[in-house]
Design a protein around this nucleic acid. Structure first.
Lengths: 212, 212
DNA sequence: GTCTATACACTGATAGAC
DNA sequence: GTCTATCAGTGTATAGAC
């Protein structure tokens, strides 16, 4: 990765580190490789970030952060439930198409070292002023209203949320399997497949919960 | 992990190696740790499996294999589409409850080194006599029949398959996130949540595709 | 801030005794 | 088959010159 003219060395390192960590994970990444790809010396990494762990933690937080603002903007909007679902699937797929490696990366590191998870969540939420609890309560209420008024079938809000996230995120983390088994290992077929899902998934969800 | 009395050392190593590789991945696993947990010397690992890579490959194949027989048995059964979906979700959730680490493991290693993926698929399919292509063609036809006769909404068979797999597998790979954010980091709540999904998911899918 | 040189620990792997 | 001893290579991290 080439350094921008108006980019500090510190930021440049972080960008390169993100690129490598995302593909290879914490354990698979070598400081030497980051240094090489950044076009600098290995010691300079330690000068700016002291340890591999600290550098990784910064990368992880940045990567993980991507997941939430979209969710927040969507939940707190004034739309109807169906409109929210359509908008969410659309914007989330766009986001994931631009950052396809992040989900698998986050999932692996979270499973690899789940001890720090709670702490990481807390600091991310604080630093970004996210009050997910309140947001989910809001969404929960909105879903409950639709259920009670007979507009959608009875479904637990958390189950619905996980269903939506599953349908959005899984096709990206399982790319090698989907592409390899279902799509003849053809990259352009995979791209088309994902593109089609923007419509397929929101239709699928709305069809699942709406009462006709 | 303790050695069974009637278990060969070779098998014992493989079992212990699976346990460690599943949790820590290829890069995160140390041969020393496998040796320690198996209660043997490090050199003995190399005596039986020559290299870390070869030991890993064996573990990976065994882990990956779990994914397919259930799919095959389900697709080739004589059930109706809805019955197949219900049976599949039920049996797949049971399988994943018993092997919760496998999906995240497979996904990470597949993303980490996708070069060998095609080769791995091929050898697994051959060794287990799986003809996925034919099976998917069969399922495709069955779905198409239901679509044409107006029993289910028009949907691409591959999209439907990915939807089903997403809803089944994602809740396991994203366990730390779901548990940490939605379920107050409470293990028993997570267990209940998963248990409920056996019904929720198949209802969700059938509701999504059926014409009422 | 950036480089070279180097310390120090650890890893996968092999040789050889029993 | 199983062990001890050991090697070469590589990893992170630091010290010190400029």
């Amino acid at each position: 990765m080439k350094k921008d003219t108006n980019e500090t060395t510190e930021d440049h390192i972080l960008n390169v580190a993100q690129e490598v960590f995302l593909k290879k994970g914490l354990d698979g990444t070598r400081m030497q490789e980051i240094a090489d790809k950044a076009g600098i010396n290995k010691s300079l990494l330690h000068y700016y970030y002291r340890t591999k762990q600290k550098l990784f933690k910064k990368v992880f937080k940045v990567a993980f952060k991507h997941f939430f603002p979209t969710i927040k903007a969507n939940i707190t909007s004034e739309k109807s439930l169906f409109e929210k679902i359509e908008a969410f699937v659309e914007t989330y797929y766009n986001l994931l198409q631009k950052n396809p490696y992040i989900p698998a990366f986050v999932i692996h590191e979270l499973n690899r070292n789940s001890a720090n998870v709670a702490e990481i969540f807390k600091s991310i939420f604080q630093e970004n002023n996210l009050e997910l609890d309140l947001m989910f309560d809001e969404l929960n209420k909105q879903i409950q209203v639709e259920v009670d008024s007979g507009k959608i079938i009875p479904i637990d809000a958390k189950q619905l949320i996980v269903n939506i996230l599953s349908l959005c995120i899984f096709p990206f983390v399982a790319k090698p399997i989907i592409k390899g088994i279902l799509l003849e290992n053809d990259e352009s077929k995979y791209k088309t497949f994902i593109e089609e899902r923007k419509k397929v998934v929101s239709q699928f969800i709305i069809s699942a919960i709406s009462i006709r």
